[in-house]
Structures are given as C-alpha cells and as structure tokens.
Amino acid sequence: MELKNKIPFHFSIIFTIACIILVITFWISIVYGSADINTSTILNAVFNYDPEDVNHNIIIDVRIPRDIGALLVGVALAVSGAGIQSVTRNSLADPSLIGLNSGAALMLALTYAVSPVITFPLLILTGFIGAMLGGTMVLMIGRSRKDGFNPVRLILAGAAVSALLSAASQAIALYFRLNQSLIFWSSGGVSGTTWQQLYTGIPVVAIIVVIFILISGQLSILNLGESIAKGLGQNVKLIRAGTMLLSMLLAGISVAIVGQIAFVGLMVPHISRFLVGTDYKKVIPLTAVLGGCLVVSADTVARLMGEAPVSAIISFIGVPYFLYLIKKGGRTI
C-alpha cells in the first residue's frame, strides 16, 4: 500500500490562515445581529463590563455564549467526524449519518420526560449514552461479514436507526406533551446557549480534542489498514473502541447544546485531509479549527436570515458536498 503523504500545502501556513479565519468569523458573528452594536461597545463590554448597559448585557449574556457555543459544537462535531471516519475507514461517515445524533436526542427527550429540570452535566451524560445506543446499533448492523464497514450498508443502517429513534422521540414528546422543546432538539440552534453549559462543555471538549491529538499518530497508523496496523504492533481493537467512545461523547455534548446538526463531521475532515494530507497529527487540529469556522459562520448566516435553523443552513452546503463525494466514488479514505 502506498503511503499517501503528499502534502499540498505547508501545515503551519494552513493552520495559521485557518485560525485567522476563525477569529474573523467569530468577530463578525458577534458584531452582526438584530441589535446594532459597534466595535467599541463590544470591547467595552468585554473589558469594562457595565451591568446597567443593555448592549453590554446582550453581548455578554447572549451573543458571546452563543458564538462560543457554535464554536464548541463545530469543534466537537468535526473532530467526532474525523474519529468516526478513521475508525470505519469510510469517508461518508458522520455523527449524524451513523445515528449518534438521533440516539442522543432520544435520550434527551426521555430525560426531559422524566424530569424537566436537569443539570447540564447530567444532560451531557445522557446524550452520550444515547449516542452510544444509536452508534452501536448502526455499527453492528452496518458491519457486513464480507467487507467490514461498507458505506452503503452503514448509511442505510444509519437512516433506518435514525428514523426509528426519531419516531420514538416524537412519540415520547407527544405522550409527555413536550413538543416545543423537542422541535428545538431536532432542528438545531445555538441561540439558547448559556454560560453554565459552556463551563461544563468547554473543558470536556478541550480534553477530548487534546486526547485525539495525542493519539493522532495511532489514527494515522490505523488509516493504513487493519493488517498493517496490527503488523506495526498496534492494539487495533483498543484504539478503535477508544476513538469511537470519544467521538460519541463529542456528539452527545453537541446534541445537548444545539440539537442535531448533520454534515459538519462529514465535510470538515475531508477538507482538512485535502489541505494537509492524511497525517492525523495535522488533520485533527485543522479539523477542530475549521469545524469551528463552519458552524460559527453558518450560525451568523442563520441569524441574518431571521433565525433559520443552523442545521438547515449547513445541510444546504453539506448535501451537495455529500452528493459530490458519492459521484466521485470516494468510498474509502
């Protein structure tokens, strides 16, 4: 097997540009919104917070948490997608397409049905359990005895499991009369992000991303194929299971914050691999930054369109990309 270590662009340049783009999109996202607020007010709000000033309150309590939420979700979904793609060696995998998001949403619906007041860390935990439920179902059924994770099987199983779990969530919502909050979970929006969610979310996502960067060398080896990885002395099962669990945790967190958003985890790792090659030491950090860019800018667009769902905005870019990938026939990484 040929090593695909052709690097189109130098990593440090790409990474720096990506970070600059992220800062710019983040800034634009804070500036533009329904209330007109200029740059100096924003700086004042951050460094000189005045609790009496309405604009300061908007900045600190609404916009900044919302943008950090979008950033966090983008990072989580994109890195989760990269992890899943490397484990299944399938370029069409995405947290939403393999049932993680709908599983998490179902567990959250159940949690809300049982107790409407629940702390955020517990929500993350239930989201994680749900993602595990959905993901395990899809992976078990999608793995054919013949050729491992065949993309068609995986996507079909994902579609069916998602249909089942979403129907179950809807039935629970109808039974316990919690439709309003459920619509929120399924359509995806970062508008309600609170600092409290972020205090839990940021450290968890940060730790997982760091772990991913630490094991990225192992992921690159896994990417060479199971037999080569085993030959190089890798504990393939452990790496696979660990990566999968971390990816599920990331998906669970993002569903707990915004509801279901698809295609981020599909597109971003692709773009990263296109830019810096298949070395996961480079792919993971770049994926994290670009994922943040994507969701933050999609959220800005959604806000400018009068609070359209972010998930819909992203799927407008994501689906053509998905179709392009199928057309290209890029079945495996």
Binding site: L156, A308, P309, F322, L323
Partner: peptide, 24 residues
Amino acid sequence: PANMVLIGVGLSAALSGGSITMMR
C-alpha cells in the same frame, strides 16, 4: 443502485432541512 440509495438519503436530509427552514 447502491449510489441511488446513498443519494436518496442525502437528498432526504437536504429537503427536510429546506422544509423546516421555510416553516419559520
């Protein structure tokens, strides 16, 4: 036939997304 199914799943996501956006 295999691609047909994959494309269908993708389009389904886009179209429901579009419907939800318009519902606003």
